[in-house]
Design a protein around this nucleic acid. Sequence first.
DNA 1: TCAGTTATTGACTGCATGGTCAATAATTGA
DNA 2: TCAATTATTGACCATGCAGTCAATAACTGA
Lengths: 191, 191
Amino acid sequence: MSRPREFDVDRVLHQTMEVFWNQGFKATSYEDLTRTTGVKKQSLYCVFKDKRSLFLKALALYREQVIAKLKEIEALDSSPGDKLDALRYSLLDDETGCQGCLIVNASLEFGTDDEQVTREAELMVEEVQLVLEKIISSGQKQQLISNRYTSIELASYLNNTILGVRVMEKSGSSREQIETVLRTSFGMIMS
Amino acid sequence: MSRPREFDVDRVLHQTMEVFWNQGFKATSYEDLTRTTGVKKQSLYCVFKDKRSLFLKALALYREQVIAKLKEIEALDSSPGDKLDALRYSLLDDETGCQGCLIVNASLEFGTDDEQVTREAELMVEEVQLVLEKIISSGQKQQLISNRYTSIELASYLNNTILGVRVMEKSGSSREQIETVLRTSFGMIMS
DNA sequence: TCAGTTATTGACTGCATGGTCAATAATTGA
DNA sequence: TCAATTATTGACCATGCAGTCAATAACTGA
């Protein structure tokens, strides 16, 4: 029917996600994107409409990845304590070369100006919150985790801890500093 | 000897600080600055050299303000618990119309690219850390604050909590959400 | 083989922006 | 009053960038 696309849309989306992750939205130019993906500007326009649309797709992809990983941990056949440990380690060792959290970065870059970006951030927070609540409340039932606060409060608390750690990562804190914060914050909720 | 300056440098620096605080570095143009300060581009160049130099001066001013406020709280004639409460309330009610923390915003915008910005962020974290440690360790001596962790660990912990809250503020979380996080995080360290 | 369709390419446009220049204004000391 | 000095002003410049356009290439179904 027509000329076939010469590149893999999914691969390109992953790569652009990493560029945005590293550099932010405004600081990323089409030149950056074509350099890392090997795809010319106009081809990107054909598939992804806009710079902003492309960015939003990258945000969504990122969120899916984060949630998938978190659910993987939740689905582990182990105690709530071990699940929290697994989460802690996964926060400490980012396999990608990227730092911080794309959505945290985006939230701070856009503030509350961009409706869609804000929505994407809320979505991620809600989903993370849910998974954390599940793990925590099962830990509380086993008397493993303190009952001084509700699972909702503790999930918000952990969520916020993670936000802070994402900032530390991106702003160049040492692994030791981050490790201390994670150990203390996660340890604190154990009864 | 020469023509006197027609504007107050300090006033202008405060105003530019707020613009950068609200909009970030890249998103702020000289037009924005002249609009809010009433001072023309070239005059700003005369006094502050560069956009980046101006930004760095704003960062330093911001840091001084934050530290001053924190030391004010520390110098209060009240218990460590009350001091922590005062800190918590001050985090909850920002008197300026600005959201988040200028230096956190800057850290995320620049990553670790800019030597000076990174240094400024480190400076602030160190200073905050010191004040927090003092309050915490005196609270620990009075058995008010848990001795399960060292004052250094708890100060890092609180510092990170504050980072997270700054992100929440900027990304549009509700006052209730922030209040919950602060209450839980600050409450958690009490023995 | 050809018509229709979509992808690719590179050139182009318009605009915003950081930074500079040169002319002019205001001030003070001699 | 004038010379020296610094502030102010508005015009100007170079650049980088998002987005568009038009020409061409590749593919398929008829």
